[in-house]
Design a binder for these strands. Structure first.
Lengths: 394, 394
DNA sequence: ATAATTTGTTTTCGCGTACAACATATAGAA
DNA sequence: TTCTATATGTTGTACGCGAAAACAAATTAT
């Protein structure tokens, strides 16, 4: 039996975390009194906790503004910029290394675009390690709280092993073994699924700061299609951390065979590779080229987009029926063609989602961040600090 | 902002709940020292909390057993039988009223079988109310902690309204309005979806006592098919409480039209109505009759079952890919034909579930309880007591 | 009988939040 | 300028709760 009794120190840890998260969650800097009002704690209690968090380098005080209202001017509190996390990402078309601070700002980054399909893990991760060292060099005395790596595949985060990344051609390997200690700043490397981590950046625009949507389905369009379901601000990872494989939901049992061994998977209609092939474009064609073809009335392009939208509608309707999540965020190449997909997609959803008569579904593109997985990986580490700042304060 | 600061009383509430849940969770009666060992709390703390819970009527002490080991004999602790909850259920083929105590035992029950398709809400709920009063009469001085009603449809539990129950022919009504105060023991009536509540009885075999499975997909086979996803012992209810509509996942976009307006819904292949019709049986045929036909080599029955298993495989594979839940529990008529479905169902799942190569899926029937929704509704109320026993103790 | 062992209770202590009073710093009015 | 109102931040005391240790109780083994 795991649930442990709460001690008095638990109380402190819990409230310390609450104060830190409240400050991080607020778009505008809060004062001690503001935190007290939002948490229903007394000013005295908040004051002591804030003092500890400031001393511990988790929060920082700003100069009081020149113009204030009546009463003693408040001291604005903000997340400290002295805590940073390293986010790495390997994708089929790029490598990325990022340093993100507790305010959610990208302190340093390095992205290299390249075709990495079928690449060698050792040399690729070696290259990523060099990029990482360079980025870490720009840390300027900030404390590194952790490092994470986003991968486009099935990951066993407990054991730190990548089980399968079909788009890279990688299987059953331990990425940390190919990254030396210096490349991850001496911290243990946590690995995660790219779509899960990208979805996290939508759910949290900065560490501890919730985004506009708390419940949504995120689709990451790449060569294939990854996905994640976010419920109440939390990414649903499932029993083993393999949840969100929307790309392999069956859209049509009589459809084309998929790499995974099944038939009619969503990926075979709306994955980038399938989509550009169906539109008669070169494998490395961009979404902009596809849009151009559509504008010029190309019938193959039209059919390809309609088919993708149709397939997305069927798959997502199933997911919405099962999860009751009324918002969809499209990332990767799907984000760039959201408006092309919308009409057919919405039609399918209206028809097939049981609750469509009571609640309207929203569909929107993710922001255009080229490497959201890296940011998500870094945010995950920073969020861990907010979940238990006592470790950093005492 | 909702998250409230933790006070010292929060600590007490939390630990009080932990003690109560620990006692309830244990299959064999625990002593104070046993609770202390499992919760990592000290014996002194546990002792004080247990005393309060016993005084408050949440827990009870048993007589020490005659035969013990060395040392002072322990006082066995059990959930009190003095707290009961009322669980009601309306289904297409029966009405049920149950009284369940904190030990998870059915203290009193009354089930009436009838064809309720297209029945009148007022008279049906009036009839249920009469059954409820009779069952409440057998309470024998126990305290009623709450009442719940399980319904086969889409429910807005916040507002207490049933939005749609296609199998009953009900829509947009407030069940509590048709049940007088006496019929619900003077407590507010909470309504819930039948499949969600039935799934709860699998996740918790008694209030606070986890079942064998903590993560599973529950399918409730009736005229249609309801469902629920349980993650980490909790039923996923979704943004509005409408999650789990597996019955309307699209299995084949070119399939037969469904009542819901879509096409090729799982329900059209594996729902009871669809299944018996495809097998050439009368609408009220039992699963046993279907099995009999199969044994005698009837080809229509064979095709019908194969088709149902095929459809279940496609729909469930999608759900498993999205949720990463490696266990499936079949209830209602599907539970009774689990073994007939298993071969084809397992084959589809092996083929279409992405993680099938690493984890084996389990498929099993639910226990044969005729009205699991009623038990689940009662358990929900009892679990609320365990979540905050401080309310009942102080 | 005596020792050993385990359970349950009691007492004292420390920690952390609540509460109230007070100090601090501004805006606005007399 | 001076006084008042208002809001923020700090200080000191009180209270509640869990921790730890000592003690009492009830049984088995020697």
């Amino acid at each position: 039996m795991e649930p442990l009794g709460a001690r008095q120190s638990t109380l402190r840890e819990s409230n310390l975390s609450l104060v830190a998260r409240t400050v991080c969650a607020s778009p505008a800097p809060l004062s001690r009194a503001g935190v007290a009002a939002r948490t229903s704690m007394t000013r005295s209690t908040v004051s002591r906790l804030v003092d500890d968090l400031v001393a511990g380098g988790v929060l920082a005080e700003l100069e009081p503004p020149a113009v204030t209202g009546p009463g003693r001017p408040a001291i604005p509190l903000v997340p400290s910029s002295g805590l940073v996390a390293l986010g790495l990402q390997v994708n089929a078309s790029y490598l990325a290394a990022r340093l993100v601070d507790l305010r959610g700002r990208v302190v340093a980054e390095h992205v290299e675009y390249d075709d990495l399909v079928g690449c060698d893990p050792r040399s690729t991760l070696g290259r990523l390690g060099a990029m990482s060292k360079q980025v870490l060099g720009q840390a300027q005395g900030a404390r590194l709280v952790g490092a994470g790596l986003a991968l486009p595949g099935i990951v066993s985060s407990g054991s730190g092993r990548l089980l399968l990344a079909p788009n890279l051609g990688w299987s059953d390997l331990e990425p940390a073994a190919f990254l030396d200690d210096e490349a991850v700043g001496g911290t243990p490397l946590r690995i995660g699924n790219e779509a899960d981590l990208a979805a996290r950046t939508v759910a949290q625009v900065a560490p501890g700061r919730p985004g506009r949507l708390a419940d949504f389905i995120y689709l990451s369009g790449e060569i294939g299609i990854g996905g994640a379901a976010v419920v109440d601000g939390q990414v649903m990872s499932g029993r083993h951390g393999w949840a969100g494989e929307v790309g392999h939901v069956c859209v049509d049992p009589d459809g084309p065979p998929c790499r995974c061994g099944s038939t009619g998977c969503l990926e075979q209609y709306a994955g980038r590779q399938a989509l550009v092939a169906a539109a008669g474009l070169a494998p490395d064609a961009t979404p902009a080229e596809l849009a151009e073809r559509l504008r010029s009335g190309d019938s193959r392009a039209k059919t390809a987009v309609a088919s993708a939208a149709w397939a997305l509608g069927i798959a997502l309707a199933g997911v919405v029926n099962v999860l009751d999540i009324p918002a969809i965020v499209l990332g990767g190449h799907l984000g760039q063609i959201t408006e092309l997909l919308r009409p057919d997609l919405e039609q399918q959803l209206r028809r097939r989602v049981l609750s469509a008569r009571w609640v309207a579904l929203t569909i929107e593109p993710a922001d255009g961040d080229p490497a959201p997985g890296a940011t998500g990986a870094a945010q995950l580490e920073l969020t861990a600090v907010l979940a238990n700042p006592a470790k950093w304060v005492d």
